[in-house]
């Protein structure tokens, strides 16, 4: 069990960060991480060799999507989840200064996760493809769409100082 702690615990800060970005609520995020870790511990004997970080992040994301399904109270396929936009968005947060997390919360989950894993978690495109179980080309196209939407978000943001070269059609 100590081996497990040595291997997994270094990943916990990043898992919390990803969960927080997905859920916005700290308690809910830690619940998700706890659920993920418990899953990982139980599944450990069946784990194949491979990227531990990608494996843990994949578990977390799958648990998150299952949670979304449960909250909606319906059985939906993965394709229906692609258009999930805001989850756990604090309505008050959108009133004042624009939080960049509001920007990503407005993205479909599939784009949000790609952007978070690439831009915040510093995963390679291949690693993101492994977490999401999609081809690298799909990672790139989702990243493009995510970034395109967020540029628009920044442009609409009243509190952001627009620097040089900021205006884009």
């Amino acid at each position: 069990m100590d081996d497990l702690a040595v291997l997994i615990e270094p990943q916990i800060p990043a898992l919390r960060r990803y969960a927080t970005a997905l859920l916005r609520q700290r308690e809910a995020a830690d619940d998700l991480v706890q659920d993920t870790l418990e899953r990982a511990i139980r599944a450990w004997p069946q784990r194949r060799e491979g990227d531990l970080r990608a494996w843990l992040f994949a578990i977390l994301r799958n648990r998150y999507l299952e949670g979304v399904r449960r909250r909606r109270g319906i059985e939906v396929g993965p394709e229906a989840l692609m258009e999930i936009a805001e989850v756990g968005v604090d309505p008050e947060a959108a009133v004042g200064a624009r939080d960049v997390l509001d920007g990503i919360a407005a993205l479909p989950e599939e784009q949000r996760s790609v952007l978070l894993l690439v831009a915040v978690e510093d995963m390679s495109y291949a690693e993101v493809a492994a977490v999401l179980a999609i081809p690298v080309g799909t990672v790139m196209s989702r990243l493009s769409r995510a970034r395109g939407r967020l540029r628009a978000f920044l442009d609409r943001a009243p509190t952001i100082v627009t620097g040089h070269l900021r205006r884009v059609k």
Partner: peptide, 24 residues
């Protein structure tokens, strides 16, 4: 966007791990 996201989320990863998330 990348820098703002990173800066916004960095504090979460800098926190000590809550006891309830310790593997033990």
């Amino acid at each position: 966007v990348r820098e703002r996201l990173r800066a916004r989320l960095a504090p979460v990863a800098d926190e000590p791990i809550p006891a309830r998330l310790r593997i033990a």
